[in-house]
């Protein structure tokens, strides 16, 4: 059972460059320029929002190519998820015992 889910995760991760085949944004997740172009103005709440300073904004690492950035982002994400669940397991079990 566990072995099988690992296989699925590895296969999906290997396919990650497929996610780069399109540059099209998700519906409703446009940048500010989109509103400027389509409406002629940017709604105030959207305009005044400061973008968060994310360390790996848009899954892009400046010094790397698109595909390597995307792969590395995927791996960083997976590792972070496991670290969080690992810590939670330790914390929960420490409290339980």
């Amino acid at each position: 059972m566990k072995k099988r889910v690992y296989i699925v995760l590895i296969v999906l991760t290997a396919l990650i460059p497929l996610g780069l085949l399109t540059n099209a944004p998700a519906w409703g997740e446009w940048g500010k320029e989109y509103y400027k172009n389509s409406l002629g103005f940017i709604p105030k709440g959207i305009e005044s929002t400061k973008e968060l300073n994310s360390p790996i904004k848009d899954y892009t690492i400046a010094s790397l190519g698109d595909i390597s950035s995307y792969y590395l982002s995927a791996i960083i994400g997976i590792i972070m998820i496991f670290i969080i669940f690992y810590i939670l397991t330790k914390v929960f079990n420490a409290k339980n015992s």
């Binding site: 995760l9 999906l12 982002s73 998820i81 669940f85």
Partner: peptide, 26 residues
């Protein structure tokens, strides 16, 4: 832990696989 972690990781990965659709969005 491994199962919950791996299923969550799968969700993270599947959300990175953007699929283009007609109308210029994905």
């Amino acid at each position: 832990l491994p199962l919950i972690g791996v299923l969550s990781a799968m969700s993270f990965i599947i959300m990175m696989l953007n699929i283009p659709i007609p109308g210029g969005t994905s």
